[in-house]
Every structure is written in structure tokens, then in C-alpha cells.
Computed example of a mutant assay.
Amino acid sequence: MIVNGTEKSALLLMSIGSDQASEVLKYLTPFEVQKLVNHMVNINHFSNIELNKVLAECYDLFMKNNDLVYNNNDEYISDMLIKSIGEKKGTILLSDALEIRNIKMSIKSLNSMEPSKLASLLEEQHAQIITTILVYLDPDQSARVLSFFKEEKRIEIVIKISEFNGLEEKKFVELKDIINDLINKKKSTFSNKGGIKTVANILSSMERENEKNLLKKIACSNKELSSKIIQELYSFENIINIDDNVMKCLIKNLEEEKLYIALQGSNEIIKNKFLNNMDEEKSKKLSLYLKEKSYVSNAAIENEQKLIVMMIRNILDYGTFSIENLGKYYV
């Protein structure tokens, strides 16, 4: 799915022919060209609807038997780059882009590896290498792999993930060699993912007791970081991504007054997430209450919002709301 202007531009360039595309690239900065090429080498099939949105005025040029037709191959990109910036620079630029693409593809394949085996293979690696790999694994896989490390090492890696801004150039070759050893492939991946949100995603996939213990240990060495992670774990904004069935279970077990307090000052998207999962009568009633002026304190709002997030995590873990186990989520 096309999500930003750069991807739309990449699709356009891959649809107009290398001669025309190379002319366009001549007017862009090296940085802009690099961004476009990185997207082009990773581009996949797009639906007719998506293509029509991006290339409305050129629709007939790129449709054949209701299928999308575009130049999705490395030769096309190479031809385009050589014509726009010369053979030497074009070859280097494409080589770098393909390198990154192949690295990303390789590291994703580690998601299918047995967590204990992957953890064993990573055990002796530098913490930064482990960090890079865990950042790009699925959160569930990262959590499982992380659980096999000793506590001290887990804390070190979690802190590094929160500070991760990409792999140092000198570590790039080392990472490629490691991925080769792990999955018998030539390439691996690195990028600029990471940060508090990534840590929160990984920790939320762990067993609750392991999560709490790890947070306590992190707090001992870095209280500020621990607070930021907890804040992300219990972010009320993340509710918009919760499955509607979970929301219905939550609403069924949640006191109306608590929900009313929690939704004070929330944006319409969050409010609608709740309202759309209620019966019509309750939805109308709550909507009217929310339109009235409120004198609820910010502290009360935050407390109820945190309770709701705890209840959601409880439902996700047990398949239903379990008040007996709610205490596990207090941090």
C-alpha cells in the first residue's frame, strides 16, 4: 500500500520509462535520488485502485487486462540511474540500495527460526549486533529470543534498542557475516528503527512477570528510560489499533463513569473507537455526556486511562477479562 509521497514518486518513475525517469532524476538532489532508489528496489505490486489514485491522468498507460504493468526490475533502475547520473555513480548507488534491500529480506527470515536456537547463535555476538537484529524481528520473536539471555544482558540490549538510530558503518560488514552464518545467506539488514516504541512492543509480548522484573532492573540503572518505556506501554493513544472484539469485551467489563473520565480531552478517533463498539443507546448517552463541560482533574483522567490499558492487556493475554489477574499489570 502506498503510504507517502516518496513511494508514489518511485512508482511514477517506474512507470514512465527509464529515459523519462532519468530526465526527472537530473533535477533532484543526491539525497532525494537515494531515497527514491531505496523505495524503488523494494516496490511490490500495487492494486489498480492505488495506481489510479497516484496516476489518475496517466491511467490508460499503465493498465493492461486490469493488471498493473510497470518496470519492476533492477535492470530498469540501473538503466535509469546510468542515464541520469552516469555509469559509475549509478552503479554504486544501485548497489548500495540493493545491498540494504537484501539485508532487510534476510533478517526478516530469522522470524521463522526457533527462538532458543537463534538466541544461542547470538549469545556470543556484540550487544550492538544483537540489538540491530532484534529491532527488525517481529516483536513476538524478539521477546522470545530476549527471554533466553541472562538478565544483565537483557537489560543492556533493551537500553541499546531504545537508543538505536542505525548501524555504524564499520559494523555493517560484521553484521553481514553474522547473518551469513545464521541463515546461509549473503546479506542482512540495518536501518534507523528502534527507540522507546520498539522496546515497548517487545516487552508487551513478554510474560508479564518477566516484563515487570526487567522494567525494575532498567529503573535501577536508568529511571528516566524506565519511565518512558512504561509511558509507551500504557499509552492510551494505542487503543485505536486494538481489535473491535477486544474493545467490546473491555466495554462490557468497564464502569461507565470510568470510561467517561478516561475519554475527557481525547481526540475524536479514540472516542469513536469506543462509541462504535457500544450499543446505540449507550453510545448516544456517552456522546451527550462528553459534550458537557468537565471538571475532572488530569490525574484522574490519566489513572482511568491507565486502568483501561491494563484491562486491554489483561484481555489480550487471557482471551477475556480476568479481574483476579489484573494486579499483574501494575508497574
Rank of each mutant, 00 (worst) to 15 (best):
E7Q: 15
K8H: 00
L13S: 00
G17V: 02
S18D: 06
S18I: 01
S22R: 01
Y27M: 07
L28H: 02
T29S: 11
P30Y: 01
V33W: 00
K35M: 13
H39Q: 13
M40V: 00
V41P: 08
N44C: 04
H45C: 11
N48P: 04
N52E: 13
A56P: 03
A56S: 15
E57M: 03
C58A: 11
C58I: 06
F62W: 08
M63F: 05
M63R: 14
K64Q: 11
K64F: 15
V69H: 08
E75D: 11
E75T: 04
L81C: 01
K83E: 04
K83Q: 06
G86F: 04
D96I: 08
I100W: 01
N111H: 07
S112Y: 11
P115K: 13
A119T: 04
Q125P: 00
H126S: 10
A127K: 12
L134E: 06
A143Y: 10
V145G: 07
S147M: 10
E152P: 11
R154K: 14
I155M: 10
V158T: 13
V158E: 05
K160M: 07
F164M: 07
G166E: 13
L167Y: 09
D181C: 06
K193M: 12
A200P: 09
E209I: 13
E209K: 15
E211R: 13
E211T: 10
E211A: 06
N213Y: 06
L214H: 05
L214Y: 04
L214K: 10
C220N: 14
K223P: 02
S226L: 07
K228Y: 02
L233C: 05
L233I: 14
Y234V: 06
S235N: 14
I239M: 12
V246W: 02
K248D: 06
L254D: 11
E255M: 12
K258Y: 09
I261Y: 08
A262M: 06
N276L: 11
M278G: 07
S283Q: 07
L286A: 09
S287C: 02
L290V: 09
K293H: 04
S294I: 08
I301G: 04
N303S: 12
Q305D: 14
Q305S: 08
K306P: 01
K306W: 00
D317H: 11
G319M: 09
Y329T: 09
